[in-house]
Design a protein around this nucleic acid. Structure first.
Length: 474
RNA sequence: GGUCCCAUCGUCUAGCGGCCAGGACACGGCCCUCUCAAGGCUGAAACACGGGUUCGAUCCCCGUUGGGAUCACCA
């Protein structure tokens, strides 16, 4: 386990980077960083009809946002045609592959028939020993000649040895009739070419692995070590999909999640390190080990992700949170894009909200009454706390506040204590109407802090406005 | 259907022959308290089933059941 380790993350660009892909990328990343290896990023785009530049960009963006940096790539398979073709040629010459003239239509029929008769639907080998190829046939495909006897064992770091009987493996297509090689072939060539030592990927590839091992062997190349990760499922134990809610990494970015929080949640899905739940990236790198990865599938739990995100928000200083929350303040129209905040003041405001924000979206939302003067009073809150009963209290507070020289939380607290005694009320009676007048709602950080941060002028204005609205409505 | 994988609280998991089966999220209660959070304490909650092996099985073996994956000129 030294500097020879080379791993890769090789998503197919058929959509955006999703949660499952992100975890696969993360495990590859952690494994290679842990062992000082190289992390190669490769795009599996042999299916031209489904791969778009937009998707490729989205995946790259996702990786960058997560901070999963790679050492080589991103490579694209469509740019490596010559390499694949020469290997196909080699197998053909050695009799380890053959041309197949069966049409896609015929094959489709046979497959359906096999399925209805409950037989295995693999290729039946019609062209395997063909002596006289049809002269009029156009564009044959090339199939790999799979051994019909013996068995193939996948040595998997997570599952141990998994053995397949070779007679269950069929002669799969390695080169399409349009001249494009297929995934199961290309992935092997690339992994050989790029010197991949450990293939860490989703469980869904386990059944492909014996076929790929046969290619390695036909080519006379050493087989890498495999590690097949358990699937991530939705709450209904079905493969995670849009039906279960947000599944793309970008969606979580937009919902105000921190990349390190997403990664932290993901790393615990299938892996654990004692009782530790919260990890920094460095801690993950130091603790991660493939042999501690579990083998049973896992269920994605958004609630726990939310909790982890809150934990990571708490790890940041208010100053660090400013640039992170800024896009959300703009998004929510709380500030314009030209807004240049008073860092000192904004940090103090954020400090009061860190414990109360599980996402950056929530943080931005709560920041509204500090930053914007456009406060709407919640209807039920207004009715309950801004009325004729509370009017004398509001008047009393505003009068005292106007005379207060030192508008600090400490002085304000003293003032409130005096007022409580004067009116013979508990703090709640005093604080809630003020809170509603100041923030528009019944929920906020401590009332003294809010007053101090808002400052004398704005506080008095808002309370006055509330008083006026009561007077006007009566 | 064939092949392959998997099986501890609702969920993520610890456990690697002898534990009151531990932790975390979520949930309930209490405390703190100007609201809401945060925090502290606390409660409820699991070894799928059946056979073996063993002095003893959550743990090892086999089977059953259940779930998942895969069987394309997709990746």
């Amino acid at each position: 386990m030294t500097d020879k380790i080379r791993v890769r993350f090789a998503p197919s660009p058929t959509g955006f980077l999703h949660i499952g892909g992100a975890r696969t990328a993360l495990y590859n990343y952690l494994f290679t960083r842990r062992h000082n290896g190289k992390f190669i990023f490769r795009i599996e785009d042999t299916d031209q009809t489904r791969s778009t530049d937009e998707y490729i960009e989205a995946i790259i963006d996702g990786m960058k946002w997560l901070g999963l940096s790679w050492d080589e790539g991103p490579f694209r398979q469509t740019q490596r045609q010559d390499v694949y073709l020469s290997h196909v040629q080699k197998l053909l010459e050695q009799g380890k592959a053959y041309y197949c003239y069966c049409s896609a239509d015929v094959l489709e029929k046979k497959r359906e028939l096999a399925m209805t008769q409950k037989r295995p639907p693999g290729y039946d080998g019609t062209c395997r020993e063909l002596k006289n190829p049809p002269t009029d046939a156009v564009n044959p495909v090339v199939r790999f000649k799979m051994p019909t006897v013996g068995e193939t064992t996948v040595s998997d770091l997570i599952r141990g040895n998994v053995t397949f009987n070779n007679n269950t493996l069929d002669d799969f297509i390695i080169l399409r009739s349009d001249g494009m090689p297929t995934y199961n072939f290309v992935v092997v060539i690339d992994d050989i070419d790029m010197g991949i030592t450990h293939v860490i990927r989703g469980d869904d590839h386990l059944n492909n692995t014996p076929k790929q091992i046969q290619i390695y062997q036909a080519l006379g190349c050493p087989v890498p070590l495999f590690a097949h990760l358990p699937m991530i499922l939705g709450a209904d134990k079905k493969r995670l999909s849009k039906r279960h809610g947000a599944v793309s990494v970008s969606a979580y970015r937009d919902m105000g999640y921190l990349p390190e929080a997403l990664l932290n949640y993901l790393v615990r899905l299938g892996w654990s390190h004692g009782d530790q739940e919260v990890f920094t990236m460095q801690e993950m790198i130091d603790a991660f080990a493939l042999d501690k990865v579990g083998s049973s599938s896992t269920v994605f739990n958004p609630e726990k992700l939310l909790w982890i995100n809150a934990e990571h928000i708490k790890k940041h200083s208010p100053e660090e949170l400013i640039p992170l929350v800024m896009p959300f303040l703009i998004e929510q129209c709380i500030v314009g894009s030209e807004y240049s905040p008073d860092i000192d003041w904004l940090s103090k405001a954020i400090a009061t909200l860190i414990e109360r924000s599980r996402t950056l979206v929530e943080l931005a939302h709560s920041l509204r009454y500090y930053i914007s003067d456009d406060i709407k009073i919640d209807e039920t809150a207004g009715k309950k706390f801004l009325n004729n009963d509370t009017l004398p209290l509001l008047n009393s507070v505003i009068t005292s506040l106007k005379e207060l020289k030192d508008f600090s939380a400490a002085s304000i607290e003293k003032l409130f204590i005096d007022l409580m005694a004067k009116h013979d009320v508990k703090l709640g009676k005093l604080a809630q109407p003020i809170r509603v007048a100041l923030t528009g709602n019944t929920v906020s950080p401590g009332i003294y802090e809010v007053l101090e941060l808002l400052g004398k002028e704005i506080s008095i204005n808002r309370i006055q406005k509330a008083i006026n609205s009561i007077s006007n409505s009566e």
